[in-house]
């Protein structure tokens, strides 16, 4: 008997009784299976805190408040036109060289980078030598001040972790109240490409279509491992700068 079978058999005998194969128990087993399928299909939402259900204006304000509390810095702009100047400004204020690295994300391409004549914009994943990475968030969560980024052809995950400074652009419209709403949005995004594997019956045959990596990021990296004193800048970015764009 394989390890897999042995483990599953022990679990079943604990759940159904040592030889849980009587007719009644088999019927019970069908019920269990139906229960699991239903749960995976409907993915019921549990308790959503009131602060995760605010109307738009308050939601964006809460996002700013929570992200600041998590030590992120924030700029709010009224259009993509202003983003390049804001990034240049961020670099200047911190005496950083005028160089950034970013993915090929189409939303980043809307930024008029060329207007910043001295800014060196490199594309592609980081190999650990870049001081500043720029990303576009898929969504954000007001309840906790988090940004949500996912991997894909145009969004290298290394940019979220290797640079010293991480600049994340997020559309005000993409700020959700709670994490549950982000999962709905992700399913809708993936649904468009028939990526609903996760929604078909539990353990269905369709490929799972979550992106390889979904990063929920709340503030810059930190550690409290020396005398339980929290210090910013552990292994990930030392600073997280969020640019909210009202579109």
């Amino acid at each position: 008997m394989s390890a897999r079978e042995a483990i599953l058999r022990r679990i079943r005998s604990a759940t159904l009784g040592p030889d849980g194969r009587s007719a009644g128990e088999r019927a019970g087993d069908e019920q269990r299976k139906a229960g699991v399928r239903a749960r995976l299909e409907t993915a019921p939402r549990g308790v959503i805190p009131a602060r995760g259900q605010l109307p738009r204006a308050e939601r964006v304000a809460l996002f700013e408040e929570m992200a600041s509390a998590a030590s992120a810095t924030i700029a709010r702009l009224s259009s993509y036109e202003e983003v390049a100047a804001e990034v240049s400004n961020y670099l200047r204020e911190r005496n950083l060289p005028a160089a950034i690295r970013m993915g090929e994300d189409g939303r980043l391409a809307r930024v008029p980078w060329a207007r910043e004549k001295t800014l060196d914009v490199r594309k592609g994943p980081s190999e650990g030598t870049d001081l500043v990475g720029v990303s576009h968030a898929f969504a954000a969560i007001a309840e906790t001040g988090s940004v949500v980024l996912h991997s894909g052809a145009d969004n290298p995950t290394t940019l979220n972790f290797l640079p010293e400074h991480h600049v994340v652009i997020v559309d005000a419209d993409a700020i959700a109240g709670d994490m549950e709403s982000v999962w709905s949005a992700l399913r809708n995004e993936t649904d468009r490409e028939n990526l609903a594997g996760g929604r078909s019956a539990g353990g269905g045959q369709d490929a799972a279509k979550m992106p390889r990596t979904v990063n929920v990021i709340t503030g810059p990296s930190r550690s409290g491992d020396i005398e339980q004193t929290i210090l910013l800048g552990a292994h990930g970015p030392r600073a997280l700068h969020l640019i909210i764009v009202d579109t």
Binding site: M66, A69, A70, G103, G124, P125, E143, T144, G145, S146, S151, G152, A153, P156, T157, T158, A208, M210, P211, R212, T213, V214, N215, V216, I217, T218, G219, P220, S221, R222, G236
Partner: peptide, 22 residues
């Protein structure tokens, strides 16, 4: 005592065909 830890990461399989890293 944090509302949320800094990094909550969901990983699903190896890098995809067109992923630049992972």
């Amino acid at each position: 005592g944090q509302d949320m830890s800094v990094y909550t990461t969901f990983s699903t399989g190896p890098r995809r065909a067109d992923d630049p890293d992972g």
